[in-house]
Design a protein around this nucleic acid. Structure first.
Lengths: 259, 259
DNA sequence: CGGCGGCTTGAGGTTGGTCAAGGCATGTGG
DNA sequence: CCACATGCCTTGACCAACCTCAAGCCGCCG
């Protein structure tokens, strides 16, 4: 693990933080107002904690599962496997994300999830999950908005893969990654440690690994980004955003989602 | 409009049907058990009805909106526009689908939605929507599962666009379209009227219109499908499913989603 | 120190986009 | 009722883009 990755991870491993600082609770609160009782219910559900090693499959496509997992710290990828050996990464998972959404909302998981770093998770059974939603409708409503945000991210990835040029896809991927990492305190104003290898980036945006490399080189050559190991610096955000038609509003809470 | 399209539409325009036969209610019930009071609350919300002409934009990317719309009858597409004139269709909308998911769960709509046929909709304000979820947690829970299903569809479209061959994408698109149309009574066992033009199919799967035509011809040549105007007949479902790695389980309710 | 995973670069070949022209069906207005 | 316009499907030729394969290299970890 690179030094920067290690450093950013540590930020999220703090034990015994206040419940309202938990990345999952922060994310939910952005979507609907949660009162004291909501927080208490969440604290109960997020009590237990479990650790996962880097590289481990948390969820395997086609297999049964007992509930959902919420990420406290660490990064993962959610992906589908193709018979002929290919792989499509549909999303990267950061602290506060739900490992089992939407894969576990089926009898058998429809996607796999693999840990990119050491992770800590909270495991929740479906019964506990449904109970929580029944008891605290505000949380259920926040989860609907959370799901809408997740679906939007997929839709934007689809737009990238379907209709954007390789260079635009890479630019978009970098900008989205940065906004999301910054939101959970894992990036500075203009730099972050890319958790994915170039081959994985290819699997996320629908390109071959060599072509990802060429596109990154081109962005470097144009002076839009700088790279040093896994660390990416954004040098000209305005130009990148125009190139990728990137508007971060699909990633962030908005006032109408705070009823 | 083709005769078959007209015929299938009529099925869903029946007025004054029982609330539990409404396609939206059917869809929700598949995800969570709804009791008599849940149905009553839904009936109240689905009371008003509004008609939309073929070709009209129901929702426009970047604009404000007042709530969400639920489709009673007719078809639509949800899409994103690119600055240089391109378009990516992220989903097709059928009876029972929510026009504004996830586009309207933001200050300004993040996608556009256009009617492919004459449609009838139920308009619901966000206040009414949130009130419904607060009052009837079972409905909120069903909506979370509904959102998970929607997100899964996007993820599968992403897998198509990112990592499957043109022929596989078209095969997958046809099979998904058929399963979804059949679920709302708009397809027979092995045939349906394709609501999209070949250009639109290209915008959905990330291909050019001429190439969509070539791929359809190839499927015809291999004896997997037959086409007559807009009507598509599936001649060899097994071969199509293998080609597309299609497993309809991501589209349908499963037992674990019926708590 | 040795091995391995991932990055980098190059050459060559196929795929699928672009452009263009023609055909067919539908609908419309004279 | 016919002429025309329009939109969509169909086909072909050409060419750029991006994949595949391959080899070398670097840095990290065991």
């Amino acid at each position: 693990m690179s030094p920067l990755l290690a450093a950013t991870t540590v930020v999220n491993v703090t034990k015994n933080r206040a419940i309202e600082d938990h990345p999952f609770v922060v994310k939910l609160s952005a979507h609907a107002p949660l009162d004291r009782d909501d927080l208490k219910a969440l604290a109960r559900v997020l009590k237990s904690r479990l650790s996962v090693k880097k590289g481990k499959d948390i969820l395997v496509q086609g297999y049964e599962h007992n509930g959902i997992d919420i990420i406290e710290s660490g990064f993962a990828i959610r992906y589908g496997l193709l018979h002929k050996g290919g792989r499509q990464i549909v999303n990267t998972l950061l602290p506060g994300d739900i490992v089992g959404f939407p894969a576990s909302f089926y009898d058998r998981s429809i996607f796999s999830v693999m840990a990119l770093t050491k992770m800590t998770l909270h495991s929740i059974s479906f019964d506990a999950f449904v109970g929580l939603c029944k008891e605290r409708p505000s949380i259920a409503i926040a989860l609907i908005w959370f799901a809408a945000r997740e679906a939007s991210i997929y839709a934007y990835h689809l737009i990238d893969a379907g209709r954007r040029s390789p260079l635009e896809r890479i630019a978009h991927f970098i900008l989205e990654m940065h906004v999301r990492l910054k939101a959970v305190g894992c990036a500075t104003e203009n730099a972050f440690a890319m958790p994915l290898s170039q081959e994985s980036i290819g699997d996320a945006v629908g390109l071959s690994a060599p072509h990802v490399n060429r596109m990154l080189s081109e962005l470097k050559g144009e002076g839009l980004i700088a790279m040093e190991g896994h660390e990416i610096k954004i040098l000209d955000r305005a130009a990148l955003q125009i190139m990728a038609e990137f508007d971060p509003s699909y990633l962030v809470r908005t006032s109408s989602s705070r009823r």
